[in-house]
Design a protein around this nucleic acid. Structure first.
Length: 125
DNA sequence: ATTCTGACA
DNA sequence: TGTCAGTA
């Protein structure tokens, strides 16, 4: 499939698909015309990229991870033992990020709990 | 009509 | 990441 279908099937826009390729996350074939040709596997790869990106992993790390996972029906199995150590580090980072978000949530809860007392002074900053 | 590369009010 | 340009 070419760019257009890839965009429809992944929900990721053209700009981003080219960017992922630039970052070494995808390596679609090329037609003599220069047009990119994506495979079904690439569609799945983009799904993984989106997930890893959402987890906050830098594209550089994702580029290392993608070629090191075997797709065994149930999920993703690590293939590079050395990389597992780095992933443990990422997991720690995510753990801390969750902690910070919970602190933010707590702050908002406190503000919300205080609730609007009355409409007086609306204009004051 | 589609895709491509490069660039930035 | 969006978007516009100038092509093939």
């Amino acid at each position: 499939m070419r760019m257009g279908e890839m965009v429809r099937r992944t929900g990721v826009n053209e700009r981003l698909l080219r960017y992922y390729e630039e970052q070494g996350l995808l390596a679609p074939e090329r037609l003599p015309s220069g047009y990119r040709v994506y495979s079904d596997a690439d569609v799945e790869t983009v799904r993984r990229i989106r997930t890893l990106l959402a987890a906050g992993l830098p594209t550089a790390t994702i580029a290392q991870v993608l070629p090191c996972v075997r797709d065994d029906g149930s999920g993703l199995a690590p293939v590079c033992p050395d990389l597992v150590a780095q992933l443990r580090g990422e997991r720690e980072r995510i753990r801390h990020a969750i902690k910070d978000l919970q602190a933010s949530q707590g702050m908002l809860d406190t503000i919300i709990a205080a609730g609007p007392v009355d409409g007086t002074n609306r204009q004051a900053a």
